[in-house]
């Protein structure tokens, strides 16, 4: 099977599964909105006090929502042997990993990006940060999902758990979060932070499928 065909087939299947399962699409969005609600409780009812940190909180909520349930990304396919079958059929593992990560991005980060202006406004953000917020989330999303997928692939074995995924991908999420929050802080779309964020995403898009493939091969050995 060619790379592109494998990628598209996995993407289509995982998206269908997520839609059929129902929870898949909603889970990240609900987590995201709940985080915002709880953050508001933690800070207090004064919206003016929340204003300056609102975009940063939204960023944090989006990042955490994208890591949610990430540890299941490869485990089900590994356990029921479907990954083994695909691999023996000659499907490139990197295409499988890229397809699954993209499906996860569609199910988690994309809806959260669309919801982000609403959340930011609820937290008292100024309207002029809404565009930079959405753009930076859209550009930075792949970095979080694909770096997270790396941790998920490494921890995909029967004994890996959520803890392992967190420990493995957590440190890698620091740079894109720094750049993403930087875009918000400067509030400008031509800031170098946005370029660095884009660079992080591109690097994750290239590196992650390769690393995931190496890790999955170890699990299949």
């Amino acid at each position: 099977m060619s790379w592109t065909r494998t990628f598209l087939a996995v993407l289509a299947r995982d998206t269908a599964v997520a839609r059929r399962a129902g929870g898949g699409w909603a889970q990240a969005s609900v987590f995201f909105l709940l985080f915002v609600l709880l953050a508001a409780f933690a800070i207090g009812p004064e919206t003016r006090a929340q204003g300056p940190i609102a975009p940063a909180l939204v960023w944090l909520a989006a990042v955490l929502a994208s890591q949610l349930s990430l540890d299941h990304l490869f485990r089900a396919d590994l356990d029921d042997g479907s990954l083994d079958i695909l691999a023996t059929a000659g499907a490139p593992l990197s295409a499988i990993a890229a397809g699954k990560a993209t499906a996860h991005w569609l199910a988690s980060f994309a809806p959260v990006t669309l919801l982000s202006p609403l959340a930011a406004l609820m937290l008292g953000a100024k309207p002029d940060v809404l565009i930079p917020l959405m753009v930076s989330l859209a550009i930075g999303g792949p970095a979080f999902v694909f770096f997270g997928a790396m941790g998920a692939a490494l921890a995909a074995g029967r004994h890996g758990g959520g803890l392992l995924v967190l420990l493995l991908s957590g440190p890698l999420l620091a740079p894109p979060l720094i750049f993403g929050a930087g875009v918000i802080r400067t509030g400008a779309l031509d800031s170098p932070d946005l370029k660095l964020l884009l660079a992080s995403s591109l690097m994750a898009l290239v590196l992650s499928p390769l690393i995931c493939a190496a890790a999955l091969r170890v699990h299949l050995e």
Partner: peptide, 15 residues
Amino acid sequence: VGAINLPIIKFSVDW
């Protein structure tokens, strides 16, 4: 993976 990322982390934290 950590070694590839360490310089980037270092740079981003400096930034």
